[in-house]
Structure formats: structure tokens, C-alpha cells
Amino acid sequence: MEKPVYTLEFEKPLRELTAQLEQLRQQALETGTDLHNEIAGIEVKIEAAQREIYSNLNAWQRVQIARHPRRPYALDYVALICENFEELHGDRQFNDDRALVGGTAFFDGEAVMIIAQQKGRETKEKIARNFGMAQPEGYRKALRLMKTAEKFGLPLLTFIDTPGAYPGIGSEERHVSEAIAVNLREMAMLRVPSVSVVVGEGGSGGALGIGVTDRVVIFENSYYSVISPEGCAAILWKDAGAAPAAAEALKLNADQLEKLGVVDEVIPEPFGGAHNDPTQAAAALRRSLQKHLKELRALEGEKLLEVRYERYRHLGVYEEGGVAHT
């Protein structure tokens, strides 16, 4: 297990306590004094603070964890749970979008098609990956790979992690709306089983563009939302500072999404977030994917499409004749 880093604002008490701990250890080393009891005392305090903080995370704090700079990204999970990933580049029309990648791999020895939104870890890679914001060519590459998966009967695994599709001039000129829309329609009709996992950020239409799958699973601290809390706050509260309130109101956290029937399973994360133990998080993801793929493989062609259609057909709540319907 890596040594945890406490970089988020609400982790400040932990930062302070770890600093104290380091200081004591240093002191013990330098002066040869026995500070055993003092060190143990701080360690107890750290544990208590962790419990206190991480057991009571609010919506906005979870969003911070979903965006944590050390959070495992899609390809980290692919490396941990799949074998022989062969990346397939480009949309064959315009460009190779580095924010949305894909290719063949093996999961439990069986061939699968991977489609993944990927953020960069260091500055250079962040820019190359456009901070995980895909453009039309990314969605069109994803479509191409979905069709390849269908042709060869490979189940589709998609990894969602994006603040949203890129709002740029070129993106509009190449019709990002249409690229996403076509994916929604084609994914609904795809004749192979599909599972998506929300790894970090499920940013609106940009996320949904690879997310119309038979099953949707989500990590405990990931979020999935129609709009970013900041964007929602700016429009409805007329104040971007109201993002924490918007995050609560949007019910964008994993447990709430499960209650709303939008996601099928919440995958538990190590204490404090998946970045504290990516291997453990990956193991939980592997178990979840195994279960869902097994269930889906039991559904034959038409039945698979029928069940998928019904899944999305009944999402939403409205009123008819004075009665609420879902």
C-alpha cells in the first residue's frame, strides 16, 4: 500500500497530524529519545481522524476524490485486470483522440473490446490527453471499435472518466453533438454484451457517449451527472461558489445513483479513495465485471437487446393522471 497523500482541503487535519508524526519520528531518530508513546498517540489520532473524515464525506468532498490527481485512471485498471491490451488508434477519418482510447484485451482469458476515457498524470500527458475531454474523433473512434467488437462477438468494456466532451471550436465544427448522438443510438442496438464502469468523473453527455451499456457500475466515490456542480451552480444559483450545494442537489454520488436505478452496482473503494490502494480497487472491479459479464453472456441476441432497451426505457420519473410513474 502506498503512503497516503492528503492533498484535498478537507484532509487538512490529516495533513497536520502526519506532519506532527514525521516530526516526532525525526526527533526520536536525531536525539535517540524514546518517543514510542507519543508516536503511538498520534497514530491513534490519525486513525480516528480518518474514520471521522472518510465516513462522513459529503457530495462535494466525494467529487474532489473523484477528481483526485492520484486517482487510478482507466488504463491503470486495464493494466491491473486485463492482459495483452492492444491499442487501436484513430477514427480513420480525422485524428487520433488521446482522450478516448481503445483496443482489444483479454479479461479472464476471454477477448474483450476496451473503450476508455483517459486523463493524463503529468502536465505533458494531461495536455496530450486534453484533460480527458474527448472530441468528435474520439467518439467516432469509439464507434468504430464498437462495430469491430460486434463483428467479432467481443463483449464491450467501457471506462468512463471525463469532465465532459471538449467545448471547442473544432469540436463543434466536426459536430460533436452528432458524434455523441450516433453512439447513443448505436450502443443501444449493439449485438454484444456491454458493461461500463464510471472510474472517476461521469461528465454529462461526454460520459454517456460511451455509456449506453447493458450494465453500468460505478466506484464508490465517482460521480455521474448531467452537469458539473460548478456549471449547475453558475446557472441555477448564479454563483459558481454554490457548487457544494449543487453537488448535493444533483444527487450525483454513487449510492444515490444506485437508488435512482441509473447504476447497477457500486464498487467499494479503499478507505479515503481508490488512490490509496489501486490494487484493492482493481480487485473489486474485477469481481464486479466477472459477475456482470457472466450474467450477460447468458442472454441470447434478441433478448439482450430487449433487456437493454427496457433498462433505458424506464429511466425517469414523471406524472400521468396525477400518479407518479417511472
Binding site: A181, G205, L208, V212, L257, V262
Partner: peptide, 13 residues
């Protein structure tokens, strides 16, 4: 919220 987003999937399906 998310139900609004899912109408995109529903209509497209």
C-alpha cells in the same frame, strides 16, 4: 439531474 441525461439515451434507443 441524471434522469435528464438518461432521456438522451432513452430517445436515441
Amino acid at each position: 439531474g441524471i434522469y435528464s441525461l438518461m432521456q438522451m439515451a432513452k430517445t436515441s434507443a
